[in-house]
Amino acid sequence: MRLSLGLFSLLFFAFLYAPLVVIIVYSFNSNPVNMLVWDGFTLDWYKGLFGIGERYLDPNQRVIYLESTPQLIAALKNSLTVAAVTTSFSTVVGTATALAVARSRFRGRGFCGGAMFLPMMMPDIVLGIGLLVFFSTIGMQLSLVTIIIGQCTFLTSYVFIVVQARLAGLDPRLEEASADLGASEWVTFRKVTLPQLAPGILGGGLLAFIISMDDLVITYFISGAGSQTLPIFVFSMVRRGVKPEISAIATLIILASVIVAATGLWLRARGERR
């Protein structure tokens, strides 16, 4: 019984990781004709990605280098800009809402807490087209600004949930003690609540950043011609057909997200141990 469970779990983890390994392996395959048949090791696709490889477009060799390095760089820049702004906004607003809902008693508190879950639970496509119709109705051109506004709706909800969970785990007696000892509300917040809450805020912000960098569906509907983000760029490439360069981009994305996620989870584990 135990053994078969272990065996099943092994297959389960193989299922989870095999696709990622497949991408990484194929991104180094030098076969220019059929990218799925192994031919030898090469870094050409990576070089092509950054525009530093020899750019020969020989139709007989069917070597198709990425023609759009500047577009790729622009998409990455757009993604980082959007993620930086949305993360800052949603972290501040989400934390403020969590503080109000978790630390005060007022009518409609339960409703507020429940309503904050809705943007996260709303199917992406409904929110995406809703935002598209909304922006076109009020006459707003699709741009990075519309992407930022659109992403902030559900990212605020994610940060709220993470920070609220952390707040619920804090000991309210510490804050009471601080107040009893004569600290003002602001001093109590700065010296007692905030330091304990910091890992939650950091975790929520990091989650918002990762989700923003990866958001495809909502951004897809509200990004204009000049405001492609990285996932949209990759999506439109994949739609046009598989190419070895996509595997190279995908490998770099996997690497970057694994590093960010691992750092985040490590920080959290360290925070919990203390």
Binding site: Y17, P19, L20, S247, S257, V260, A262
Partner: peptide, 22 residues
């Protein structure tokens, strides 16, 4: 648990592209 959550962070479109290849 970490290993189960990790692929979630590797971009959605990348993971689907992997299945397209496979």
């Amino acid at each position: 648990l970490f290993l189960i959550t990790l692929p979630f962070f590797a971009s959605l479109i990348v993971r689907l592209y992997a299945w397209l290849l496979i």
